[in-house]
Write a protein that binds this DNA or RNA. Structure first.
Lengths: 98, 98
DNA sequence: ACTCTATTTCGATATTTAGCTAAATACAAA
DNA sequence: TTTGTATTTAGCTAAATATCGAAATAGAGT
């Protein structure tokens, strides 16, 4: 729980999660969306990975990250419960029409 | 949002919030529930206060802290929304019968 | 075997954090 | 006004974090 909240305490990392909610993305594509250096972004990815919030697969030269929605959801669920709230899924974001 | 998640990233501070969900408590009573020194607890209170999660009134010698439930709730609500969840209040804890 | 691209690791520095003890403050009470 | 109780501030250390540029690694393509 601490690792997850720590990961969420940085706005860059929260935005990464929101971006990954739309679709999986490569480290480079994600990094391009922010002002900081790639090594810094790589460190942010590591924090998110260690919290279990994202996972990656290698694809050719690229590393593709994707959100581990269930981990985020269970953490929020547990926390919400402790404060007398209930959490439920409303919708997934639109996927691009094909 | 960052201040709130930062505040929540420490287990001591999360437990303080849970205790204050039951009832307002003095700094000393709260501190007595943990192993760490009172100055350390005071620093934790400061972090929670700066995040807006708790507030205090002076009462004689004591400082009574209470949870700012609405701040916590709005933060969670906003975050939940960004991930397609909905949050709603289920119950308040039992107050002592009189 | 090179070379290019993508990403991470390394090494450095600066800042923040959590913890402590000792000292200061605030207020009550004697 | 001195004493006692509650809490915070000050000053410190050790550990963790965020950031960078440079170097290392991994794969693909030539």
């Amino acid at each position: 729980m601490s690792l997850i909240f720590k990961a969420l305490s940085d706005p860059t990392r929260r935005r990464v999660l929101e971006m990954l909610r739309q679709r999986p993305m490569s480290a480079g594509d994600l990094a391009a969306a922010f002002q900081v250096s790639k090594p810094t972004m790589s460190a942010h990815f590591a924090v998110l990975r260690e919290a279990g919030l994202i996972a990656s697969e290698k694809q050719a030269q690229s590393v593709i990250y994707h959100l581990q929605m269930s981990v985020l959801e269970e953490a929020m669920l547990g926390f919400a419960q402790a404060f007398g709230w209930q959490l439920h899924t409303v919708s997934k974001p639109d996927s691009s029409p094909d």
